[in-house]
Amino acid sequence: MKSETAAFLKKNKKRLLEAWVQNQMSDSTLRDDLISNEELSKQSDDLLDALLVALGSGKLNVDSDKFQPVSDILSELSVTRARQGFSPRETSMFVMSLKKAFYAMLEDQYKNDPATLYQETVELNNLLDSMSIVTMETFIQGREEVILRQTDEISEISTPVIRVWEGILALPIIGTLDSARTQVVMENLLQQIVETGSRIAILDISGVPTVDSLVAQHLIKTVSATRLMGAECIISGIRAEIAQTIVHLGIDLSGINTKASLASALKLAYSMLGIEVRRAERKTIF
């Protein structure tokens, strides 16, 4: 870009900014519910400042060091917008609407010099296109971070550890037990065992849709780790069809305490701890 063009744009920054903000405000995709006008002006101002400084450097290349501040501002902005729930279209409008403002200015300045106008427009166009790409890339990255965080949250929420009695923990597992899930279950369980000093953990798999050899392996690993810590593990909630698959697949669960229901697992846990539960002599309300 010619140095006089850069200087001209710099001199007219205020007009440029006004036109740009105006463009954004008048666009139908403006999300005034997510971002205030002042904030929008502030963001536009910051980016424009950085951009005008970089334009003075001659060669227009987003990847060059001179443009680093520009890409930094853009990346931060689009990651924030992704988190706030902006759509891709709304996010890309930010840079796209700057084009219009630039073109109007250039057209005004180079009315009588079409060759220069053309050259400068193409250069600026290429630059803004690359900036759009940076915006999109980081926007998607921001979204992916959101997804990753949610995945983590889901796997943590879905594996509660319940203290059913002094020294007895229960873990109802609901949903498919894959490697990632098993890891979370195992870590939660062992941590709780240490914290509560519980000697028995009941893994209830009533809510697990299918048990294949991989899931069984995960269960066996969990039981082994529990035993290494010095606690015992009972697996309950084994439905008829699960028992059938386990035998058909030739999975050996003989070294593990298994029970059909949580109630019978609890009974076993009581007897292991030497606890007796009896009906009271006196009349009860039930």
Partner: peptide, 21 residues
């Protein structure tokens, strides 16, 4: 806990050794 999980993954279950909390 982390040691127990690692041992299981390593393939060691310490048979013959009793454990307590």
């Amino acid at each position: 806990p982390a040691v127990a999980i690692t041992l299981v993954e390593l393939g060691l279950t310490l048979t013959g050794v009793h454990t307590a909390l």
